[in-house]
Write a protein that binds this DNA or RNA. Structure first.
Lengths: 197, 197
DNA sequence: CCCCTTGTTTTACGATCGTAAAACAGCAAG
DNA sequence: CTTGCTGTTTTACGATCGTAAAACAAGGGG
């Protein structure tokens, strides 16, 4: 039996393939399915290659969280940039974007839940989580300030908005039959109305 | 080396010990830490005993979800029973109880997140989840109806309330330094105000 | 006092895990 | 055509996983 052939790829391409495969495995099988062998098979690569690009499976999972987090943040920022320039429209755009493509993707949401489940047990993931959510919340706080919310109220209101969005994400992912992304966006909008007084 | 001694316990006691140990392991180590050997060690029992009370590890995890779910539901119902009889007070009691003892327990919330991460991959857990959340939502819908919410609006508003509560739970568990349970309860109350119009 | 039931422990097995290290193959440079 | 670098695969190892089945011990009924 001869050794399998392979094509040489640029480093960043393989790295990204592994990250994407990791996200996919986390999405449809949870943490238990994101094994070295399963991820590499999903990426169409032999198991040994993982440690050529990452320090280990934990490092790959962390890199995946970072990548997915940056992708989400970029999508949110893009939504704000494309929105009407009025403060309220900008805030709405930021929040509602969570329920539109490319963020409202079942696989992405499932991956996100897997990351949540790792925060308490994995220190590196915990640090990453604090970083990602800090940035997310900072974005909301800035938009709240634009809308005339008192500086002392921004922190808690940003938490409250993040909580509703995460909760709706969660239910949209775990029980997608009970409501639609449009209804989720509608509820989020209503929450903004309530918080802006 | 002689065989270790042991004391004979009533079946339900050992069963409950294993369930509690499973919840504890899920809480502080996530799904990865909830192995047969780790759980049995936590329960002070030899590894082989698990299969005397459960069909396997998956069965134990499911039983743990069911038990924890029932405990939460009982606490919520108790809070409503102790509340003022006016409809709005009863609804508030149901929602705010999520941020008071015994529900607002870090270990319980961490366990809950672990269950979320299993829903998509494990059919039995998914069925259980639908059951538990169905009951939870039904409780809110009944209280909303008491408060004069139109039948057609109850479903979506119950989803919205559940989402905010879950989102606040999540952040309270993953980033407990950013806000307090009291602030969470305050936000939930405000959400009720907004939804009741 | 002995036996019988059964809760409990022990031991063993095959599968799979993450990782290390060696063997190989593609491709550019000489 | 050959050489050297390195991306990639293969193989191997020790650890740990869930489970099956046998060995044992505790306590009650004859």
């Amino acid at each position: 039996m001869s050794r399998a052939t392979f094509t040489r790829e640029e480093a960043d391409s393989r790295r990204q393939d592994l990250i994407d495969a990791c996200a996919r495995k986390l999405a449809d099988g949870g943490v238990a399915a994101a094994t070295v062998r399963a991820i590499c098979a999903e990426a169409g690569v032999s198991p040994g290659l993982l440690r050529h690009y990452f320090a280990g499976i934990d490092d790959l999972v962390a890199a995946t969280y970072r990548t997915v987090g940056e992708r989400v943040k970029a999508a949110l920022d893009a939504a704000v940039a494309q929105a009407d320039h009025r403060p309220r429209a900008r805030l709405s755009a930021y929040v509602v974007a969570s329920f539109r493509a490319p963020i409202a993707d079942p696989a992405l949401l499932a991956t996100w839940i897997a990351f949540w489940s790792l925060v308490k047990a994995n220190a590196a993931i915990a640090h990453l989580h604090a970083d990602i959510y800090g940035g997310y919340r900072a974005g909301i706080e800035a938009l709240l300030a634009e809308n005339g919310v008192a500086p002392g109220d921004c922190r808690l209101k940003a938490v409250a908005i993040t909580a509703l969005v995460d909760g709706l994400w969660l239910e949209l992912c775990l029980a997608p039959d009970t409501f639609t992304p449009d209804e989720a966006a509608e509820m989020a909008e209503r929450w903004l109305d309530a918080l802006l007084g």
